[in-house]
């Protein structure tokens, strides 16, 4: 995972024009082309576990994005004076801090959503997207670029969660964000809300994404 992220070496001075391109690249990469869930298959635990409704997916995505951006920003800030030998411990400390903060914030903002997400908020701390970005990118790049990169991957993760959540809630419960779509007679496919359905939905999305990627490759550029 670390070797394909095209990490630019920070020592090389970059011309001003290409720096803007690189920033844009850092931001957009995680949203689509290297989407953490659909392309890199990272962070599947929350993607499978809590995406049974649109609201839960959105809350999970936003909470993870918050932790991701704040952690990568801090990691980039301290990257020059953290000794190599203890860097992972320091990163985990930073990540755990923001996970704890987001846990309190969510309880304060919406008690119901917090009840629905339960232990999975605390489990953001072991979401490999976050440690992955901190180690592979933020520890080697400037604060601005690391934040943009983290934001891009956060948006990518949130979008992926939403993709899962929308399909699961619409088919499983016949509603979108709690609003019934098909009237009272609709028979929800309960399996979509159950954990098993998450695998079906993730598999279908992967099928679609790989099919699109294969078609793009086949077409002469």
């Amino acid at each position: 995972m670390a070797n394909d992220t095209a990490t630019a070496t920070p020592d090389i001075a970059i011309a001003a024009t290409s720096a803007r391109d690189e920033n844009l690249e850092a931001l957009t990469r995680g949203i689509w082309r290297e989407n953490p869930v659909f392309v890199m298959l990272l962070g599947n635990c929350p993607t499978l576990a809590v995406t049974n409704s649109v609201i839960n997916s959105l809350a999970m995505g936003l909470a993870t994005t918050f932790v991701l951006v704040m952690s990568c920003m801090i990691v980039a800030m301290i990257r020059d004076f953290v000794p190599k030998e203890v860097r992972i411990a320091c990163y985990i400390l930073v990540i755990a801090t923001f996970v704890t903060i987001v846990d309190y914030l969510l309880q304060a903002i919406s008690f119901d959503v917090h009840r629905a997400l339960g232990a999975f908020i605390s489990l953001i701390v072991v979401n490999c997207i976050i440690l992955g970005r901190a180690e592979a990118f933020a520890s080697k790049n400037s604060v601005l670029k690391s934040s943009l990169d983290a934001l891009g991957f956060g948006i990518g993760f949130t979008l992926a969660c939403l993709f899962m959540g929308v399909v699961r809630e619409v088919i499983g419960a016949g509603s979108f964000a709690g609003i019934p779509l098909f009237g009272p007679d609709f028979a929800g496919w309960s399996i979509m809300i159950l954990p098993g359905g998450a695998f079906f939905v993730l598999g279908s999305w992967l099928l679609l994404f790989n099919w699109l990627a294969a078609r793009r490759k086949r077409r002469p550029a």
Binding site: W189, S190, I191, G196
Partner: peptide, 10 residues
Amino acid sequence: AFLQGCFPVP
């Protein structure tokens, strides 16, 4: 099994 997961009551 798929049906049982989707529509347990019917």
